[in-house]
């Protein structure tokens, strides 16, 4: 099962290596990982999508906690949350296909950001499922190039998974 972890880390050099190294060393599977800074410049937030059962997740969380640079971990899988991914797709679209591709674009509320003689480049944001659907729909036309950011996520409502709530790590036991 896929779990979404919101992980706050010290914005220090090597922190990505530490986290990524931990996953590979202990044989945990990362589905996607997105990282960037937060409202606090000293703190970065990683959204990590991990594949594994509850036992694996428990180990992932506990091992992550042991990294000195990891400040806080929230498994938000069971929460109501907003998640987004950004995708850029360069798809074949000569004059016979162009109209269709543009229609698909409209349906998915994607935007055309570049136009070549035989291709269109689209930008789309949405949750994982929507991006997958767009990708599938465009596949028959011939996708020349595709890049996805991996998912970022935030819990809905007033519940706060950021640094401000409290700096403390949640105890898992």
């Amino acid at each position: 099962m896929l779990h979404t972890l919101a992980v706050l880390v010290e914005n220090s050099p090597g922190v990505l290596t530490r986290v990524a190294g931990l996953f590979s060393r202990r044989g945990f599977n990362i589905d996607s990982l997105a990282v960037g800074r937060t409202e606090d410049p000293e703190v970065s937030r990683m959204t990590i999508v991990v594949d594994g059962d509850d036992r694996v997740l428990e180990q992932v969380t506990k091992q992550l906690h042991k990294l000195v640079d990891v400040i806080k971990i929230n498994d938000i899988t069971a929460d109501e949350y907003v998640d987004r991914e950004l995708v850029l797709i360069k798809v074949n679209a000569d004059h016979t296909q162009r109209v269709e591709v543009i229609q698909i674009c409209d349906v998915f509320r994607a935007r055309i950001v570049d136009m070549g003689r035989k291709t269109l480049t689209l930008e789309c944001t949405g949750n994982h499922g929507k991006i997958n659907a767009l990708e599938e729909t465009l596949r028959p036309y011939g996708i020349k190039e595709l890049v996805r950011t991996g998912k970022i996520a935030m819990v809905r409502g007033t519940k706060n998974t950021g640094y401000q709530e409290n700096g403390a790590k949640e105890e898992s036991l």
Binding site: R55, E58, K62, Q63, H65, K66, L173
Partner: peptide, 8 residues
């Protein structure tokens, strides 16, 4: 002392 040892 190390919670990660529990259930590892």
């Amino acid at each position: 002392i190390d919670p990660a040892e529990i259930g590892k």
